[in-house]
Design a protein around this nucleic acid. Structure first.
Lengths: 133, 133
DNA sequence: ATTAAATACGACTAAAATAATCGGATATGC
DNA sequence: GCATATCCGATTATTTTAGTCGTATTTAAT
């Protein structure tokens, strides 16, 4: 209930880890997974996703790995969540409209306000504020 | 991901519905369930839970039902969530400490700050602001 | 060239959380 | 006494999330 997913958690841990290394160092998935006890395959897929969205640069082959591609203070938490999880919606009707309630619903507007407030909060939170400047 | 549960949604709908009736009117679970297309049994259990925590007053027997027991502007969203779902934690480590990460974790503090910010936001949101004054 | 170490990626399975149902008990107005 | 409610534990179904598997591809080092 109101939980962020492990995927997001692992992504934040990985970004923090990479940011803690020398700028040019290429960090392998294995290094991160072992340091932080994250399932390797799962982390691999997450990092691939981040690379696909130009947050990380992937270097293939032996001695390959990842480097930061984007400065973390240029991106907010909302953006990261959208990449890994899709749109933020505290209730289903915040995202789509497939709801038996629909017109009957008496809490749609207030819920939508709460949702907006959370998104706005995440909008104003850069990743570097989470990973450490 | 970051979703409130149906239980909470149904509770808010029900409270809104009850608040919309004449103060002394006793509202049955059936009336609410049918109006808002909520599974009867499920709603019943939720209202029982609210009655147990003195948010609603339960009137048993034929023509029974529920009335508001507490003014909705005396209670905030955090309280309602705690009753129906337990403590708010956007990640597991926000609640308990059974985490393989623990000392290794590099994002615990910032996550905890985000969690606190959400709780504080919900603390400042009274139920009457959701259900309508 | 071959091998080892790495990313890339789709398909699948497992586990956990949530949603809903069932069956019976108790209370009460008519 | 019957119809209509709340009450409540146990169970099942559904959905979401987490994790695994298998295989292909890329590249450095030997």
């Amino acid at each position: 209930m109101l939980k962020l997913t492990r995927k997001l958690e692992y992504a934040l841990i990985a970004l923090t880890h990479i940011q803690g290394q020398a700028t040019e160092k290429i960090v392998s998935t294995k290094e991160i997974a072992e340091t932080h006890r994250i399932p390797l395959q799962l982390l691999a897929k997450i990092l691939q996703e981040l690379a696909k969205h130009d947050i990380l640069e992937a270097i293939q082959g032996a001695h390959g790995g990842y480097r930061l591609k984007k400065s973390l203070d240029e991106m907010n938490l909302t953006a990261l969540i959208k990449i890994l999880e899709g749109p933020i919606g505290i209730m289903d009707c915040s995202i789509d409209t497939n709801c038996v309630q629909l017109d009957i619903c008496n809490i749609r507007k207030p819920i939508s306000r709460v949702n907006d407030a959370i998104i706005s909060m995440f909008d104003n939170l850069t990743l570097s504020e989470i990973t450490g400047i």
